[in-house]
C-alpha cells in the first residue's frame, strides 16, 4: 500500500458555539513524526478529538483527507478503519468486556465477516505485543480500562495501536502522568512501529517524550492556530526557554487560562 498521507486544510473546530481551532493546515506522511506543542488551552486536544470525530465538537470548516479520502464525511468507526488512530487522554472504561475481547472485535471489524482473525493466532500476537510493552499478561483478561491506573490506561492505548496497526496515529498527551520508565516503554512501542507506512502526530505539553520519540517536524500551536513549524530543534528551544519568547516574537497576547 502507498505511503499514508493525512492532509488537513483550513480546519476550524468549535464547541458550544465557541471557536477553538481557528484555521489549521498540516500534512503528516508515513515515516514522519510530527509534534504539536503548545501551552494549555490552545486547542491541541480539541484538534485531535475533532480529527477522530468526537461527537462534542463541531467542524466549522476545512478539509481533512487520509490518502485522498474525505475523513470528515466518515463516521468515527470508518475513520478508524481507514487507518486513523487516536490515543486518547481519557479513554472510556468498558465494564464486563475484556481487553482481549475488545481488541479482537476491533480487529474483526477490519476484516470480512466470514474471515475473523483466528483466535489462537490473535492471542499469541497479543501476548507478544503485551510483552513488548512490558504489560502484565493478566491485562488481556481485565475489563477495558476498568480500575486501570493512569499509566496503565496510556499503555493500553499504545497496545491497541500496536495491535490495530493504523496508518496515521495521533497521540494526545500520551506522556502526561507517566513516570520516565513508562515514557520510555510507550516511546519504544511507537518507535517499533515507525516505517514508511506509519505516520505519527504527537500532541504534548512537554518536550520530554521527544527525547525518546524523535520528531521530524515540530509545530507550536497557540490560540487555535499553528504559529510556528520547524525541525526538532524547536522542541529543544521550547524546553529551554518556554513559550513566552515565542509569544513576544509573534506579538501574541497572553492566552486565557482555559483548558479546551
Amino acid at each position: 500500500m502507498a505511503r499514508p498521507v493525512l492532509d488537513i486544510r483550513g480546519f476550524r473546530v468549535g464547541i458550544e458555539g465557541r471557536e477553538i481551532v481557528k484555521g489549521l493546515d498540516l500534512t503528516v506522511r508515513g515515516g514522519e513524526v510530527h509534534a504539536i506543542m503548545g501551552p494549555n488551552g490552545t486547542g491541541k486536544s480539541t484538534f485531535a478529538s475533532a480529527l477522530m470525530g468526537h461527537p462534542a465538537y463541531e467542524v466549522l470548516s476545512g478539509t481533512v483527507t487520509l490518502d485522498g479520502r474525505d475523513v470528515l464525511e466518515m463516521a468515527v468507526d470508518e475513520r478508524a478503519r481507514a487507518g486513523l488512530f487516536l490515543a486518547m487522554q481519557y479513554p472510556a472504561e468498558i465494564s464486563g468486556v475484556s481487553n482481549a475481547n475488545f481488541l479482537r472485535t476491533a480487529l474483526n471489524a477490519r476484516r470480512e465477516e466470514n474471515d475473523p482473525v483466528p483466535v489462537l493466532k490473535f492471542h499469541k500476537e497479543l501476548k507478544e505485543k503485551m510483552a513488548g510493552l512490558s504489560i502484565d499478561p493478566t491485562f488481556a483478561e481485565r475489563y477495558v480500562n476498568e480500575g486501570f491506573s493512569g499509566g496503565e490506561k496510556k499503555r493500553n492505548e499504545i497496545l491497541q495501536m500496536a495491535v490495530l496497526q493504523p496508518r496515521i496515529a495521533i497521540l494526545d498527551e500520551i506522556d502526561s502522568g507517566l513516570d520516565i520508565d513508562a515514557v520510555k516503554v510507550v516511546a519504544q512501542g511507537v518507535n517499533d512501529m515507525l516505517s514508511e507506512n506509519f505516520g505519527v502526530l504527537i500532541i504534548t505539553h512537554y518536550q520530554r517524550i521527544l527525547n525518546y520519540i524523535h520528531p521530524t517536524n515540530v509545530h507550536v500551536m497557540m490560540q487555535g492556530r499553528i504559529v510556528r513549524s520547524s525541525g526538532p530543534e524547536l522542541a529543544e528551544q521550547l524546553e529551554a526557554r518556554g513559550y513566552d519568547w515565542l509569544r513576544q516574537e509573534l506579538g501574541i497576547e497572553e492566552p486565557l487560562p482555559q483548558e479546551a
Binding site: M52, G53, A75, V76, D77, R81, M88, L164
Partner: peptide, 9 residues
Amino acid sequence: YFMMARGIS
C-alpha cells in the same frame, strides 16, 4: 465513541 474510534461499528 471510544469503541468506534477503534473501528468497531
